[in-house]
Amino acid sequence: MSAPPRSFVLAYVGLVLTPLFWAGNAVVARGTVESIPPLSMSFWRWVIALAILLPVGLPGVWRHRKVIRQRLGSLLALATFSVAAFNSLLYYAAVTTTATNIALINATIPIFVALLAWLLLGDKTRPLQILGIVLALLGIATVVARGDLAVLTGLQAQPGDLIMVAAVFSWGLFSVLLRRQAVPLPALTFLTMQILLGTLIILPFYLLDVFFFSGGFEVSRQTALPLAYFAIFPGILAYGFWNHGVHTIGPGRAAIFMYLTPVFAAVLAGVFLGETLGMPHVVGGLLILAGLILATRPGRSPLPAQR
């Protein structure tokens, strides 16, 4: 039997590394949120990513400037829900919830996309997909409630869990808008514009936070390294690996690798943060996994991976 083509090997390696990088995003955020305020984390992550991308992305932006000018409104809306809102909310969630919870709730993004596509776009939803959505939502409730129904009925959930649900909802809106307002740009040009516009959207909120609330952070090795990680690994590399994997092996097979994110997060959080898995995590995680399998049957479109 001949060896698999190099592109397929790279695709599978990249698709394993992508959820590892996404899991690391939650774990590193949780570990450094005491020294880097969430908005600073979000803003400087994208500034660094933009500085890396601009030399290769700017020529495409110039070539496609007419399309960009015509579709600027759509690009702004997409950047608001993805680069600006999703990541900022995720980092705010890290203040009051665990990396494991962030990853488990984050894993339900396909569920929110399917739900919002049904509500806003009128997508047909099969009975199995409806069952999958219900199971995954029950899984989220189990994780948020920490196995105690009184947490939900008494509105005592951790703020970070609810903020993370809002982040996932924001990414779902981005995904639905991406289908409704598709912008005909090459992947690199689109990514460059999303990061550029998203960074500009975050800027005024970041400045307000620095001058009136958090006071910013001290630049040191302990703060610079996490920011570099956010920019390079879950930002640029994960995006490139994901898109190469989807293009090479197809969206159905690639989507399976998303299920590794909470697994990696649980392991990393246990090793580096001392987080432990309780029964609510196990039960909620299994419900979420079952829901994802049912709701993301082969043939559904892959999710944008700009996280």
Rank of each mutant, 00 (worst) to 15 (best):
V67W: 14
A141Y: 07
L50W: 06
G285R: 09
G160S: 06
V83D: 07
Q181I: 14
A117Y: 01
V27P: 00
G139T: 08
G235Y: 03
F43L: 10
A238T: 10
H247Q: 15
F233L: 02
R63E: 03
P280S: 08
A93P: 03
G147E: 07
T192R: 13
A167R: 03
I202C: 04
L268D: 01
M164F: 06
T189V: 12
G252D: 15
I163L: 05
A187K: 15
L197Y: 13
N87I: 01
N106V: 10
G60N: 10
P234Y: 07
A103C: 11
L286S: 03
L128V: 11
F205E: 06
A93F: 05
G24T: 05
L115I: 05
F174K: 02
P298D: 13
Q181D: 12
A77I: 11
P19I: 13
V283M: 08
Y12S: 02
L196R: 07
R221D: 01
L20A: 10
L50A: 13
A114D: 12
L20P: 01
I111C: 10
I105E: 01
F217P: 03
I195Y: 13
V16I: 15
A269Q: 01
S301F: 06
P186T: 11
P298G: 03
A231L: 04
A182T: 11
F43H: 09
Y12W: 08
I249V: 15
V144M: 02
L196Q: 13
